[in-house]
């Protein structure tokens, strides 16, 4: 329901964008740049790279506006472009994104007793930033971008089950990081 309304709000602006109207493009940029920049930031974990990705994604979106048929909300269409651009950027930087080397996580105990201490957003956010690339991307896509494992598998070119196991390892690692002394404080 909410998505439908959202789509309607943007419908006219999107139509004007298709005609190459710079003001309409700026309106969409203002509306989405912050959210999309954070998506990009979570995947690349690098400010400059995240900006390059954002620029590239918006340019590609405006150039391919005619491909947007309105099946999904404009936001999720744009988000997909941003995520793909960001993943490509990370891939260029590091040859292997997923899966992580199994051995590095083998010694993580299966059952982690979750402490009941209150989490802070800032604490969780910084812990996510400390995760290795492969973990961070899967965990961010699942937890923050609301992608399911099938969708993650699709964008990362891995199987659904790899995404699942990768996520559960990432989650364990995250909780570990949050228990480190500087994070407990």
């Amino acid at each position: 329901m909410e998505k439908l309304g959202y789509q309607d709000v943007n419908h006219q602006v999107v139509e004007r964008c298709k005609g190459g109207d710079h003001r309409a493009q700026y309106e969409l940029y203002k509306l989405y740049s912050k959210a999309m920049f954070n998506v990009s930031m979570r995947i690349t974990n690098d400010y400059t790279e995240a900006e390059d990705v954002l620029q590239e994604a918006f340019l590609s979106a405006f150039k391919n506006m005619h491909n947007y048929k309105g099946e999904a909300s404009f936001g999720s269409w744009l988000k997909k472009i941003v995520i793909n651009a960001a993943i490509n950027a990370v891939r260029k930087r590091r040859s292997e994104l997923v899966p992580m080397d199994e051995r590095t996580v083998a010694d993580v105990p299966d059952e982690i007793t979750e402490d009941d201490s209150e989490w802070q957003v800032e604490q969780v956010r910084r812990a996510i930033q400390k995760l290795p690339d492969g973990y961070r991307v899967v965990l961010s896509l699942y937890l923050l971008e609301g992608y399911d494992h099938a969708e993650i598998g699709e964008v990362l070119n891995i199987t659904e089950s790899t995404s699942k196991s990768q996520y559960s390892r990432a989650r364990k690692k995250l909780l570990e990081i949050m228990r480190e002394p500087q994070f407990v404080a």
């Binding site: 700026y26 740049s33 954070n38 400010y47 954002l54 969780v124």
Partner: peptide, 13 residues
């Protein structure tokens, strides 16, 4: 909402 803490530079547009 609180997880979105970053903003691109204004001149990026």
């Amino acid at each position: 909402e609180e997880f979105d803490v970053f903003e691109p530079r204004p001149e990026l547009w």
